[in-house]
Design a protein around this nucleic acid. Structure first.
Lengths: 190, 190
DNA sequence: TTTCAAACTTGACGATGATTCATTTTTGTT
DNA sequence: AACAAAAATGAATCATCGTCAAGTTTGAAA
């Protein structure tokens, strides 16, 4: 699925690659859709942990949030595995809401308490942000929006936290450390 | 499609309802997907015109924009025809971007020039807003978010225009006139 | 080591539904 | 009235998801 897209990957192909019979997949996933969701949850969860690893040392909770959404955008637009899953926005947005929500919502709340953001309903802001984020990623990978607009995208998403355009621009402009390479995470069982 | 959802409506059913043969539909639309897009474009276009009709008399361009996105949200969550099309978010967001974009982007620019908004890239803000709007509508129709959160949703979407949370709350709170009933619009030819 | 039930695997098959296309029908022009 | 172009038709094709009856493996108890 991450190779050729959810639609293009047939269940038979998937089974063959896994070296199992066509029906075996259905012992683990009720449907093709459920499998796609599991794949997405893995991608999301892994990335959330890798972000957490870096932002651990940040002082400003607003910056933690900003780094998080920026990294999601960058990953979704540069990692081919993500790009292949970007159709079916509603499914991927839902997976992002659930898997990265605990972190993002926590950061939104912390930043609000610190007076950096002005968010009364963090869950709602996060939900809107996931959809906008996926939409933006899709627009970039399909060439409708240049990748160079990433900064502006992040600024606008930060605006949703209630800080003004200026504060958002400053926050988005701060230097960002690099993520550590992938590979430490364990596969969750199914 | 607006009755039972895009997936649930088979091409045969559609053809039967239109009183034509199964193949005839393909003389007008290359594929089921293209038909769905045409349906969406109609819904979008009609609503855009109905909104325009009301906002014609508004003084404040910011209020025009606010009324527009509010009406889209309300329509998407209460009109069953819209609700049925809400899956396939990326397609509906794209249709909204294209069909309502000319109006929305114009209003964003006007409001910016008037010093009400702070938007440098209106097209981008509109694109993010369409995705968030569709996502929010979906969340409401699936019960993940209560319809009573509509106000907050609009406030947050207005925040993306760079005005702060307070100004957004004020703008979203203004009384809204009712749309005129449907039915005046002509069907665009295909 | 043997036995055996539970758990797992298998791949042929059924069902569904989008799309195609050779043929027929309609339309409108000379 | 003749005829070519355009439109309609629906049976047939094709692809793929998901099911299921039958076979295989596993591991614990005897």
């Amino acid at each position: 699925m991450t190779d050729k897209g959810v639609e293009a990957a047939t269940m038979l192909e998937i089974a063959e690659r896994a070296d199992v019979g066509a029906g075996t997949v259905y012992n683990y996933f009720k449907s093709k859709d459920e499998l796609a969701i599991a794949v997405l949850e893995n991608l999301m969860h892994d990335l959330a942990l890798r972000i957490e690893e870096v932002t651990d040392t940040f002082e400003d909770p607003a910056q933690v949030y900003a780094f998080g959404i920026r990294t999601v955008l960058d990953t979704a637009t540069s990692d081919l595995r993500w790009a292949q899953m970007l159709n079916r926005s509603e499914v991927i947005a839902d997976a992002m809401f659930r898997m990265m929500g605990p972190f993002a919502i926590r950061d939104l709340r912390l930043a609000s308490q610190a007076g950096r953001f002005e968010v009364s309903n963090a869950e709602l802001v996060w939900r809107l942000t996931t959809h906008a984020l996926i939409g933006a990623s899709l627009a970039i990978t399909t060439g409708q929006v240049p990748a160079s607009a990433s900064d502006q995208i992040i600024v606008r998403l930060l605006c949703m936290t209630g800080i003004g355009a200026n504060a958002a621009t400053e926050l988005a402009g701060r230097p960002r450390p690099a993520l550590k390479p992938e590979g430490k995470g364990k596969q969750p069982k199914t």
